[in-house]
């Protein structure tokens, strides 16, 4: 297990390095374009251009340029946005990261719990009305667009019923954990729910089909023949083996959301997360911020996948020796 974790960690580091090189090549070494001009932004003055050239060492060889970029990003952490006249990039990103992490992790917990409960309940209720009812709810969840659902939630909780039922709902926006866990959670509970509805539906459906398959496996019949109760057969045998699929799905979704795919939810609920930051910088063609966002997103995606790999190996002993 430790060997496996070590190998995976090494692989993760290599992937990160490869991504950084690729990002560097795309941003700085695309032929036929002056990277300095792009970093300096539209209509930049000659002084700015000269400053950029010096700071990124565009007169030096490639590997030096790469090293300088990494230094700006990770060591000096002084990458500056020229579009926004001197605002530092790294603080922007480090401010956005906790927002996105809070949003996605909270939603992930909710959708995993909901999805697993729904999937198990539907499997247990095969042949009764329970199964199709749960699955219909799942489909509804999948088909509600986040921006629409979010706006409806806002309409109800911030406006129509704000003075009666939803007086407890704080105004849109993010409250850091330092304001207290209660405040933090209160600000996020509706975004969490909104984001989780979609994924809970998908996960419930995937889990159900996996579990129904598992229930027809020989080992489930064997477990029954051993005199194991139906509940234990369902949870310890069918669910346990089906979780393997759910976890690999989770790795993909979680990584993507952290990396900025939660944009719609962030916009609707006024959260200044990584998605929003990337979106804004794309609008302004603010290259240093895009660069930073892409690399930080890549970092979190790779870390999320590393954790999922470990979970995978813990869940499925067959993987450990690969």
């Amino acid at each position: 297990m430790w060997r496996f974790a070590g190998r995976r960690a090494l692989a993760a580091v290599l992937v990160l390095f490869a991504i950084s090189v690729m990002v560097f090549l795309i941003f700085f070494a695309t032929p036929g374009a002056d990277p300095a001009a792009r970093i300096a932004g539209r209509n930049a003055s000659q002084e700015t251009l000269a400053q950029v050239r010096a700071s990124f060492g565009f007169d030096k060889p490639m590997y030096m340029q790469y090293g300088l970029m990494m230094r700006h990003l990770f060591i000096d952490r002084d990458l500056t946005s020229f579009v926004n006249r001197g605002s530092q990039v790294i603080p922007q990103i480090t401010q956005a990261i906790p927002v996105t992490l809070s949003l996605v992790i909270g939603a992930a917990v909710i959708w995993m719990v909901l999805g697993i409960i729904m999937g198990v309940a539907a499997t247990a209720g095969r042949g009764t009305a329970v199964d199709p009812i749960i699955m219909v709810f799942g489909v509804i969840g999948v088909s509600l667009p986040v921006y629409w659902l979010g706006e409806v939630v806002n309409l109800i909780t911030q406006s129509r019923l704000h003075d009666s039922w939803f007086a407890w709902v704080p105004p849109l926006g993010y409250a850091p954990l330092s304001d207290g866990v209660g405040t933090w959670a209160l600000h996020l509970v509706l975004p969490w729910m909104t984001l989780a509805v979609l994924y809970a539906g998908i996960y419930a459906r995937v889990l159900r089909s996996e579990m129904v398959g598992a229930m027809n496996e020989d080992y489930v019949r064997m477990a029954r023949a051993k005199g194991i109760g139906e509940g234990r057969v369902l949870i310890r045998h069918a669910l346990r083996t089906s979780l393997i699929v759910i976890v690999s799905l989770f790795g993909l979704d979680f990584g993507a959301l952290i990396g900025g795919a939660a944009l719609l939810t962030e916009v609707v609920f006024g959260l200044q997360g990584v998605g929003k930051l990337t979106y804004d910088s794309l609008q302004n063609f603010d290259l240093p911020v895009i660069l930073g966002c892409v690399l930080y997103a890549a970092f979190f995606v790779v870390v999320a996948n590393f954790i999922v790999d470990l979970a995978y190996a813990w869940l499925d002993p067959r993987v450990r020796h690969v």
Partner: peptide, 24 residues
């Protein structure tokens, strides 16, 4: 029935490859 399954009457199936839950 559960108290009989496995204790009084046990069963062995054809394919040992699939009769055991792979994760235990």
């Amino acid at each position: 029935l559960r108290s009989i399954r496995g204790r009084e009457i046990a069963m062995i199936f054809q394919d040992p490859m699939t009769a055991l839950t792979p994760v235990y």
